[in-house]
Design a protein around this nucleic acid. Sequence first.
DNA 1: GGCCAGGACACCA
DNA 2: TGGTGTCATGGC
Length: 226
Amino acid sequence: MKELGATDVRQLEAALFRKYGDLKWWPAESADEVLIGAILTQNTSWRNVETCIASLRINGMLSCCSISESGREKLAVLIRSSGFYNQKAERLTTVCGKVCEDYGTLELMTRRITMEKAREFFSGIKGIGRETLSSILLYALHLPVFVMDKYTWRMLGRLGFETGEKRPDHVESVFVSALGGDVNRLRNLHAMIVNLAKDNCKSKPICETCLLRDNCDYAGREIIVP
DNA sequence: GGCCAGGACACCA
DNA sequence: TGGTGTCATGGC
């Protein structure tokens, strides 16, 4: 097993960029919408989340304040198709209420908050785990972090790197420093990895998706590394 | 019908 | 500390 270094990260980014280019992530019209989507997509396909986002939009509930003011039962009905809807309704109500009360919107929070303050603000809020927090910091608050999701762990493992899932902070710091803390590059690298995972490996004769899906027996290591 | 999806948390040994 | 169960819908 190899130790992941900055060069490895940049090579990975370059290989993926040749395939996907700039994906302009995250698909949302506001920072509040990023936060809402980040919770809805927990262990759920984005397709299902899109249905919920559309329902919330129609009902004028795509902001933290509108969600915090709505009833949890009504919210649960609107986000039903994302699964775990009771749990997610509770989580959304809690975090949106805190954002609304303290800042109004995440856009307003962005202007006044540092990385340390943001982490402090979200720490301890039920339902905001490591990955969800990273998504919020990177895509909603424009802060330089990397989203270490299960696709990334799996991919690193299959590329032969000592991923050390027990020390995610270290691996994340390698990604961030390798890309010079560039928020746009950090966003796009994660987006490209997710898109790689979405590709259907079994429908393609040569595919890199195998790096990311357990149900594929193809070891595509030599394809992804330039 | 089974598996998986852009997780997180409580509980237990 | 690490493993397991729970939350749950929808697409393939």
